[in-house]
Amino acid sequence: MELTHYVVLSCILFSVGAATVLLRRNAIIVFMGVELMLNATNLAFVTFGRMHGDLSGQVIAFFVMVVAAAEVVVGLAIIIAIFRARRSVSVDDVDLLKS
């Protein structure tokens, strides 16, 4: 029973998420890239759990999901706070500390 291709899929999706974080300018889309990376690692956890016949992988994936949900709530709240102050969701416009 070979499960390598699941791990390869998770690697590909992780890199797509990383590319989204690097390339996109809209903070909300960048955030969705982070979510894609978290999901990809979850897939790897579940696959390795099945590979070793251990449920711990699924438990860790479950924790990742919970923490990701909390992270989304806080992150979106920050994005809304920035949008209220600066009328923009572009990550380039948050440069008050630069000048």
């Binding site: 791990v7 390869v8 690697c11 590909i12 890199s15 797509v16 990383a18 590319a19 690097l22 390339l23």
Partner: peptide, 18 residues
């Protein structure tokens, strides 16, 4: 730079796994 970094990341990760 972003595209190259992401491609490199994907190739390295998949290569190691394969």
């Amino acid at each position: 730079i972003g595209v190259i970094l992401a491609l490199g990341l994907g190739v390295i990760l998949s290569g190691v796994v394969v």
